[in-house]
Design a protein around this nucleic acid. Structure first.
Lengths: 144, 144
DNA sequence: TATATCTCGGCTGAACCGATCGGCATTCGA
DNA sequence: TCGAATGCCGATCGGTTCAGCCGAGATATA
């Protein structure tokens, strides 16, 4: 299960993707349209900003804009930022590799072996699906 | 990330799979050989028993045995039992479907659409990998 | 300057996780 | 028949994470 926070982050970014290009959205607008608690959304957008995914303007007429085109932002990137590693085992994580304390030999670890297959499949999807892809798939009725 | 508890459960079952057929293993043995806290392992094996995956005998010479052949127990089954739903969103879970509170229309939800791809891939692996498969892959050097 | 907006740190209550404890029930060997 | 070994079971605990809230401060525009 992904966290509520990650879900909010994805929805906020989708809202920004769908907004007219170059227009900026205020926290309050996104909060209202997406039903996300305002103060919580504040934190989330701040993290996205620090990660270089969005940028903000303060003061009257402030708000948030995407810093990169929507096809250069992947689901995987956002998920890792908010929820941490995608991998189901620490010894399979790209961003936070940690040896399993009690596993003598990774190469012969059956569990690792099975989950290596899982994480590969996950990455296949998450690291190759951009927000542009997601919006496109949502707009056109999916025929697959 | 799967929980520590799930990792223990998988390791315990692997130990039972590798034990001589019809032999039973005591909690203390598994605990020692797999470096799992004994009292915690006790809980875990109890859950596996209630789920019909293993059976136990009490008293002197007690212990645990697999209730089903190793090729009839999948990783997915054990994971769902210990950690709950595998699906990354409640609205994609087989065993615990829940509508996302704030999602008007599931069919047009971009997030759901993307994660449907993820969960499909996960299930492909987890529900089709048995403990027999895992042990086999661990024994023979993997050439893939 | 006034005011709407983002910034940022801290805080809280609830839930969850990993683990432990102590007592009870059952089984078998002496 | 007794007692030791083993599984069964409920309770509890300390720490961590999650979801969300509060309030003061910085900043840009009208």
């Amino acid at each position: 299960m992904i966290s509520q926070k990650a879900k909010y982050a994805l929805r906020a970014l989708l809202a920004l993707c769908k907004a007219p290009p170059e227009a900026s959205l205020m926290i309050a607008e996104i909060s209202k349209s997406q039903a996300i608690p305002k103060k919580f959304l504040e934190q989330i957008l701040l993290e996205l900003k620090r990660a270089g995914i969005v940028m903000s303007r303060r003061g009257r007429l402030g708000g948030y804009v995407l810093l990169r085109p929507a096809d250069k932002i992947t689901f995987g990137e956002v998920l890792r930022l908010i929820d941490g590693p995608i991998a189901p085992l620490p010894c399979l994580s790209k961003i936070a590799y940690r040896r399993c304390a009690d596993c003598q030999d990774e190469a012969s670890c059956e569990i690792r072996h099975v989950f290596a297959g899982v994480v590969k499949a996950q990455r296949e999807v998450l690291d190759h699906t951009s927000f542009a892809d997601a919006v496109r798939a949502g707009r056109v009725p999916d025929l697959s």
